[in-house]
Simulated assay, not measured.
Amino acid sequence: MKKVTETVRELALPVVEENGCKLWDVEYVREAGQWYLRIYIDKDGGVNILDCEAISRALSDILDEADPIESSYIFEVASAGAERPLKRPGDFEQFMGSPVLLKTYKPVDGRKEFSGDLAGYDNGAVTLRIGEEEKRFEKDAVALVRLRCDF
């Protein structure tokens, strides 16, 4: 049986693309006692509220008809955001060389957060260029990698 997120991804992809956007991620999570189904979208030049609204309206009807989730949930369509998490190998490829924030599960050299430029990705292991040095973090140590915007 497919996971809810896989089924929703298949339903959402054509709708998102028809609206000139890219499907970034689908998440189905429980927060504060309520289930949330979130569709994250992206497009060149950025996503605006009208993009989110158009996709939400079109996809809501499709989800009602397909009924991939038996219980009640809150449905949201949102921009992937400027500081989006990188999860899939393609995400890392797309943003190679970009500034990122990496968080570890346990302290490494006395800390759990590292900022640098994404320098490599190999089967879940992430390499950052921090100043003039490169530091590799193995897959099982990495809790999160997200883009970093410096203002």
Results as ranks from 00 to 15, higher is better:
Val15Ile: 10
Arg38Trp: 03
Gly120Pro: 02
Val142Tyr: 05
Ala141Phe: 09
Asn48Trp: 09
Gly124Glu: 01
Tyr121Met: 06
Asp51Lys: 02
Arg111Ile: 10
Pro99Ile: 15
Cys149Thr: 15
Glu83Met: 14
Leu118His: 00
Lys106Met: 15
Trp35Ala: 08
Gly46Asp: 12
Asp67Val: 06
Ser79Phe: 04
Ala80Val: 09
Tyr73Asp: 04
Tyr121Ala: 04
Arg88Ser: 15
Asp61Lys: 14
Glu133Asn: 01
Glu113Asn: 09
Ser56Phe: 02
Glu133Arg: 00
Asp150Thr: 04
Leu13Pro: 15
Leu63Tyr: 02
Lys106Asn: 13
Trp35Phe: 10
Leu144Tyr: 08
Gly81Asp: 05
Gly110Val: 14
Glu134His: 04
Glu6Phe: 08
Leu13Asn: 08
Arg30Trp: 12
Arg38Met: 05
Ala66Ile: 02
Asp42Ile: 01
Gly20Arg: 11
Lys87Arg: 14
Lys87Thr: 01
Ala54Ile: 12
Thr104Lys: 00
Cys149Met: 13
Arg148Ile: 12
Gly97Pro: 08
Ala125Val: 06
Glu18Phe: 12
Tyr121Arg: 06
Glu27Cys: 09
Arg38Phe: 05
Glu134Tyr: 04
Tyr73Thr: 02
Ser98Gln: 14
Thr5His: 13
Lys103His: 13
Arg9Glu: 12
Thr5Cys: 11
Ser115Met: 14
Leu147Cys: 15
Arg84Phe: 12
Gly97Val: 07
Gly116His: 03
Lys106His: 15
Arg88Gln: 15
Val100Gly: 00
Lys43Met: 13
Met96Val: 09
Glu10Ile: 09
